Amino acid sequence: MQRLFLITGIHASPTDLLIGLTGLVLILLLIVAATALHAGQARRQEAARQTEFAERMAGLIQSNAELTGRMRGMGEYLGARHSDLARLVSERLDAVGARVGRGLEDQSRSANESLAKLNERLAVIDAAQARLTGLTEEVIGLKDILANKQARGAFGQGRMEAIIRDALPLGAYEFQPTLSNRCRPDCGIRLPGDDRMLVVDAKFPLEAFTAWKGAASEDAQKQAVARVRADVGKHIRDIAERYFLPGETQDLAILFVPSESLYADLAEHFEDVIQKAHKSRIIIVSPSLLVMAMQVMQAIVRDARVREQAHEIQIEVRRLVEDVVRLRERVGKLGTHFRQAEEDVVAIGVSAEKIGKRGDRIDHMDFIRSEPAVEEPADRLAAEVAKSGRG
């Protein structure tokens, strides 16, 4: 024991040691008692928990049984509703199928009608496309004609000839006549009372106008404008030099432009060229203006022919008056004949009425009394008929 004290370094008496051991034992007992108390409480709590768990399990089993019953009832209800729903869905599907079938038939019918109309429209479109193709070919041909100088001249010549031929009689114009200077204008028109020929020229320079229309820059446009003035001015000088012959042609000539748009551009943008042509006694006309000029000339030719035929017209009118006089006399004679015929018809009616009255008297006579007197009424009747015939 002394050794123990030496190791710990604590100096204690045996009494202190005993007290310390006693305290230690008491502490151990307290610990054991606390542990036992705690274990009892734990057992009581565990028993309470088991009781509560058993009660909850019993409630859960009861709830499960009720839920099972409800689930069984719900299953039966859902089965019945499922059969009703299946029947309703089947009916609805049948109705929808019928409606869809009718809708498909209607759509098929309308689609067939639409296809028929579409085929008709396609046929119309095909015909229009064919006409458009023909028109395109004609336009291409016209472009080729306008691109070629000779063909373009023939085109202008053809339009000019068609206008003049439709407006004037045959003896009033001549195409491609030969003048004394061996020049041949496109057309020469002879007005009444004047042996001189009015010259119509159908050649017009188109290249300068084409270049002017297609000019992309300002310099190119200025050059094209100068070229237009130069080409048209040269053509005007050529007409004045070739076709103005004293005593053979008129002091006025016509320059035919075969396009209204070309004439409009010329009149709008080249007024100086128009004035230069007027000073040179050359009139520039479009197709519509040429038609108007030809109508004026047609009126002049018609008036001249009326004046030339005035004497013959007077003779024919005089003969017509004589025929009317003779017709009036013959109508008068015919009226006299009608009046005589009417009087004769009236006289015949009077005679017929007398004969009828005498016939009635004869019908009422009695021929049974005396036979010798039979011939007297007959003789009297014959005398009366003869008298009425003379009357």
Results as ranks from 00 to 15, higher is better:
46 E>V: 07
54 A>S: 15
140 I>Q: 15
340 Q>P: 02
355 I>D: 00
345 V>M: 10
159 R>C: 02
362 I>V: 13
311 H>A: 15
328 R>I: 00
129 Q>N: 12
329 E>F: 06
69 G>A: 08
333 K>D: 15
387 K>V: 01
87 R>F: 03
127 A>K: 08
240 A>C: 04
305 R>F: 01
321 V>M: 10
266 L>G: 04
61 I>Y: 05
163 I>G: 00
205 P>G: 06
98 A>H: 12
343 E>K: 11
22 T>N: 13
328 R>S: 15
18 L>S: 10
379 D>C: 03
391 G>W: 05
135 L>G: 03
102 R>Y: 14
287 P>R: 10
82 H>L: 09
212 W>E: 02
121 R>V: 02
99 R>V: 05
207 E>K: 06
314 Q>L: 12
312 E>P: 01
381 L>D: 09
270 F>T: 03
332 G>I: 04
114 S>E: 08
290 L>R: 01
104 L>W: 02
21 L>E: 13
57 M>H: 07
289 L>I: 05
261 S>E: 14
285 V>K: 06
86 A>N: 08
78 L>I: 13
347 A>Q: 14
173 Y>S: 04
30 L>Q: 06
163 I>W: 01
325 V>S: 14
115 L>D: 12
62 Q>E: 14
366 D>N: 10
340 Q>C: 08
18 L>F: 05
184 R>I: 15
276 K>V: 02
184 R>V: 15
159 R>H: 06
132 L>A: 05
282 I>Y: 00
373 A>P: 01
132 L>N: 06
257 V>N: 01
380 R>I: 06
98 A>Y: 13
328 R>E: 14
240 A>S: 12
170 L>C: 04
339 R>Y: 04
209 F>K: 01
130 A>T: 09
153 G>D: 13
71 M>Q: 09
351 S>L: 10
158 G>E: 13
175 F>Y: 09
55 E>N: 05
98 A>P: 02
256 F>R: 01
57 M>L: 13
189 I>T: 07
138 E>F: 12
127 A>M: 06
343 E>N: 12
30 L>I: 08
265 D>E: 12
337 H>P: 00
164 I>R: 00
345 V>G: 04
354 K>N: 07
171 G>Y: 09
132 L>H: 12
181 N>F: 12
300 I>V: 15
201 D>V: 02
240 A>F: 02
10 I>N: 07
25 V>M: 14
229 R>A: 10
199 V>R: 00
232 V>W: 05
136 T>L: 11
94 D>S: 15
49 R>D: 08
309 Q>I: 10
157 Q>M: 09
332 G>L: 08
304 A>W: 13
165 R>L: 05
352 A>E: 13
